[in-house]
Design a protein around this nucleic acid. Structure first.
Lengths: 194, 194
DNA sequence: GTCTATATAATGATAGAC
DNA sequence: GTCTATCATTATATAGAC
């Protein structure tokens, strides 16, 4: 199995295509064409399609972990950091409007395919969940940190799905504002309780 | 084009398989096998796969309309009727946990396929949106009825996606209770405002 | 309306030369 | 590491007999 530049290119192209076209609907030919290599060469780097999927998921897990560390260091307060998460709905809007949320759409596709890598894909959700839970704990909501984390996750996930379906940026912007307002009201409560 | 019992069986089987396996991943052979007819016979009823998809979507639109009419007549108050919608997360949990929300998952799949029937599939979301908007108007929230309708839609959609990924019934139950509480608090406000 | 072929294209995957 | 050639399988779709 290769570990060079070509392999990285394949993973990057597959990552992009799996997001934009779906995993099942993306063929080896599609990926090979994107990387500009022959299908034969392809099999030198990955034996099966499932192997590429695993590499793509590991790639997404790595990138997500790095992003969360970045947010952790760049955000002054837990509230700011949670808002970094909420605002990806706006910063990634040009992609979300056409292809939905990369995390949610892969998880639901693999669920329908009853794919063996389903649990691995779900771990991206878990990364966000644990990170958000940690932020809410820092905010003073120790007891309900996980419930709040899941609430933010599901809210943003729903907004991504509906925003994608209705192609409505104003709606997404409004919901993001509502989420930020909800977060502000929540931290006020925590400050009062202290 | 046939309009008899076989056609109805095909649409019903395709509807089920598109939900459980996804549209793209379901082959004519899969559907033919489910209905117990030959693939040749299949083409007597539907010329292309897209034709079946259109029939399935129309079938879902019809069923949704009937369900909404049922909820309209069986629910005593707008609040009760909105709760009918919220509670499908629990009544359909055994399906949602394995295959997600039938509306959201089809819309996101067709978005990725850039399918011509994407707009048609989105109409199922619109049916719920208009119906919910109507309920909130009846509740006294004339001005913000559409915003509230979209909020309920996205919230439930997110819970379906996360519930599916984490296979967590207790989380879904908790979120459904939170949605009902939110709705109760909202209608109190409306009564005070009158 | 239903069936058995069959055509045609694409897919995942392998073998072997360079 | 990269290529061409090839295979087996599956898919959509058609033709034509009953």
């Amino acid at each position: 199995m290769g570990h060079g530049a070509t392999r990285k290119q394949i993973v990057a192209a597959a990552d992009d295509l799996f997001y934009r076209q779906g995993f099942d609907h993306t063929s080896f030919a599609d990926i090979a064409k994107a990387v500009n290599i022959s299908r034969g060469n392809f099999y030198h780097h990955f034996k099966t399609k499932d192997d590429i999927l695993d590499a793509v998921i590991r790639n997404r897990l790595d990138r997500t972990e790095h992003m969360l560390v970045d947010w952790e260091t760049s955000g002054a307060t837990p509230k700011d950091r949670i808002k970094s998460y909420i605002k990806i709905l706006l910063t990634n809007w040009s992609l979300i409007k056409d292809y939905g949320c990369p995390v949610g759409t892969l998880c639901t596709e693999l669920a329908k395919l009853n794919h063996t890598s389903r649990a691995e894909a779900n771990k991206v959700f878990t990364l966000f969940r644990v990170w958000l839970r940690n932020q809410f704990t820092q905010l003073g909501h120790m007891q309900e940190a996980d419930v709040l984390a899941l609430h933010v996750l599901s809210w943003s996930q729903g907004v991504a799905t509906l925003g994608n379906a209705f192609d409505d940026y104003n709606y997404v912007k409004r919901e993001v504002e509502k989420m930020c307002d909800w977060l502000d009201a929540l931290s006020v409560k925590a400050e009062k309780a202290q």
